[in-house]
């Protein structure tokens, strides 16, 4: 039996289908979850995908964070459920305080859409074990609110504990502090990042490479070997 990985659809989600496809390409079974359902259908892990949930009104992710599905997800994430937040999903995880810091508009005030080079800084999380620490990957980045901010004490803590999971390489595309592209919680089960691994799992599309696929094979291996 393979692992079942949920993908939540909120009003305004864009990448739920691509995320489901990436999960299938990795060999796991995607399970569609709905924002109004408290029920997580007993999935083994959850991905919060990209898009503009609730139109990014108030703040990106601020309204989605209070959806019924998030009540259950927040409780279960705190007791070990693996959760990956991509782009808007990352924003939702910071709004839910499952991950530290916050997301603000890109410092240049423009939408950005490009292939982005990242360095995987932490290959010990539930979602990154199929990478090696220090590995450089290239996956698409597309967002308006990608600037990661946190107070100095939080940044120092993240750096000291190796919880900066991904860092932008060559260029900082949005003014994120310490070039941070993604972070993990202390337990390593909750990970968030702005760039989109689900768009880079087949050579035909995305960056022409499959640099995003290890996110999904990492979690599959962890769940199957559990």
């Amino acid at each position: 039996m393979t692992a079942r990985i949920g993908v939540v659809t909120f009003p305004g989600s864009l990448d739920d289908r691509d995320t489901q496809r990436a999960i299938r390409v990795a060999g796991a079974e995607p399970v569609a979850l709905w924002h109004k359902d408290k029920d997580l259908k007993q999935v083994d892990a959850v991905v919060l995908c990209g898009g503009f949930s609730y139109g990014d009104y108030l703040r990106a992710g601020a309204i989605a964070r209070f959806s019924p599905v998030m009540d259950t997800l927040i409780d279960q994430a705190k007791t070990g459920l693996p959760v990956l937040g991509i782009c808007n999903g990352f924003q939702i995880l910071t709004e839910a305080h499952l991950l530290p810091g916050g997301m603000l508009g890109n410092d240049h005030l423009h939408f950005i859409c490009r292939d982005q080079k990242l360095r995987v800084e932490n290959a010990d999380t539930a979602w990154t074990s199929d990478y090696t620490a220090g590995q450089e990957i290239s996956i698409p980045l597309k967002n308006m609110d990608g600037r990661y901010v946190a107070d100095r004490r939080t940044l120092d803590e993240l750096e000291a504990e190796g919880r900066v999971a991904f860092r932008y390489v060559d260029v900082n595309p949005n003014g994120s502090l310490n070039d941070i592209a993604g972070v993990t919680n202390a337990a390593g089960n909750v990970v968030g990042l702005m760039p989109h691994p689900e768009h880079a799992v087949e050579p035909l599309i995305g960056t022409g490479r499959t640099d995003g696929l290890p996110f999904f094979t990492s979690i599959l291996k962890k769940l199957v070997n559990a």
């Binding site: 603000l104 508009g105 890109n106 410092d107 240049h108 005030l109 901010v149 107070d151 003014g175």
Partner: peptide, 14 residues
């Protein structure tokens, strides 16, 4: 308001 230590590019543009 954004906390004082956080960069506000919209305010700067204005």
């Amino acid at each position: 308001m954004l906390k004082p230590e956080i960069l506000d590019p919209q305010g700067q543009a204005v």
